[in-house]
């Protein structure tokens, strides 16, 4: 786990997810406090937490990709020579692009549907649903971008280090 000793620069999605998670945490804690101290439970908590929750997954996914934290079965790929590793990376990128293109398409359709039919969440003062579901296509698009980035840098790096290995 990276330590935050030096000033690290964070990507926009990292800021957004960190803020969303902080808000969710405060909201849940505030609900407990207000139930016991003010005897006034917050009514919208469950609905708002439920609506914000998918953001952690869909906007968090590109961060996981960027930081290469997705667990994978590495037994066979580790047996490959180092200079071929980049092709494994490429395969992952292709698979990810296919998956997230699906999600981009259907997430967009879903969001447009909510917008078109003016679907609302009653417990959130009838807030429109599309503002929450839009995290799906946005996250999918970001993931596609990040996974291509990872692959491109793998090809650059590994090509160089592969060449070095050959020299030795």
């Amino acid at each position: 786990m990276p330590k935050g000793k030096t000033k690290t620069k964070y990507s926009p999605e990292e800021y957004i997810v960190a803020i969303v998670m902080t808000l969710m945490l405060i909201l849940c804690f505030a609900n407990v406090l207000s139930r016991y101290i003010l005897h006034l439970p917050l009514l919208f908590t469950d609905a708002l937490l439920g609506a914000l929750f998918p953001m952690v997954t869909f906007l968090g996914a590109p961060i996981v990709c960027m930081r290469k934290r997705n667990p994978a079965f590495t037994l066979f790929s580790d047996m490959l020579p180092r200079k071929h590793q980049k092709y494994v990376e490429l395969l992952t990128t292709i698979a990810s692009v296919i998956l997230f293109s699906f999600l981009l398409y259907y997430g967009t359709m879903k969001t447009l549907d909510y917008y078109q039919y003016n679907t609302t969440i009653n417990a959130l003062n009838n807030a429109p649903r599309w503002i929450f579901s839009v995290c799906i296509p946005v996250g999918a698009l970001l993931y596609i971008w990040r996974t291509i980035q990872v692959s491109v840098s793998a090809f650059k790096e590994r090509t160089i280090s592969g060449a070095e290995e050959d020299e030795r």
Binding site: L40, T45, D46, A47
Partner: peptide, 13 residues
């Protein structure tokens, strides 16, 4: 209606 009757309405799944 519940609030009008003085209940503390709590939110949970």
């Amino acid at each position: 209606g519940f609030q009008a009757a003085g209940a503390n309405v709590v939110d949970m799944s």
